[in-house]
């Protein structure tokens, strides 16, 4: 399969993620949409890395680090969402304005 097809899948996923991020107000749903974008970025990154021998190992190592950091980022955002739910009983991001000191 040509790399172009992988990149098309990545572009469509990216667009779906952007739609979810713009159109939803629930913080967990926004996180899930951001994760779609993250997955599409990984796919595009590895598709392009597989084109050149110089960048195969570089691309692989960067993706491994990105996946690890994404796991940490998910933990932080889910913790914020849980705290928000315990304090305000809602997951609506518009309510986050009220968290200002």
């Amino acid at each position: 399969m040509e790399v172009f097809y992988y990149l098309v899948v990545s572009a469509v996923l990216f667009a779906l993620g952007v739609y979810g991020l713009l159109a939803r107000r629930n913080i967990i749903r926004m996180l899930l949409s951001a994760e779609i974008i993250f997955n599409s970025a990984l796919l595009a990154f590895l598709s392009l890395a597989s084109l050149d021998a110089t960048y195969v190992a570089e691309g692989g190592s960067v993706v491994i680090l990105a996946i690890s950091l994404s796991a940490a980022e998910v933990g932080v955002i889910v913790s914020i969402a849980l705290m928000m739910f315990r304090m305000k009983r809602t997951l609506d991001v518009y309510e986050l304005k009220k968290f200002k000191g």
Binding site: F4, S10, F14, V18, S47, L51, D52
Partner: peptide, 24 residues
Amino acid sequence: SSVLLAVIMINIFSVFNVQPAYTL
């Protein structure tokens, strides 16, 4: 915005119409 993004990205990516050449 999402449709526009998809169209722009697919247009940019159309240059890479080649097989993946290397494995890790």
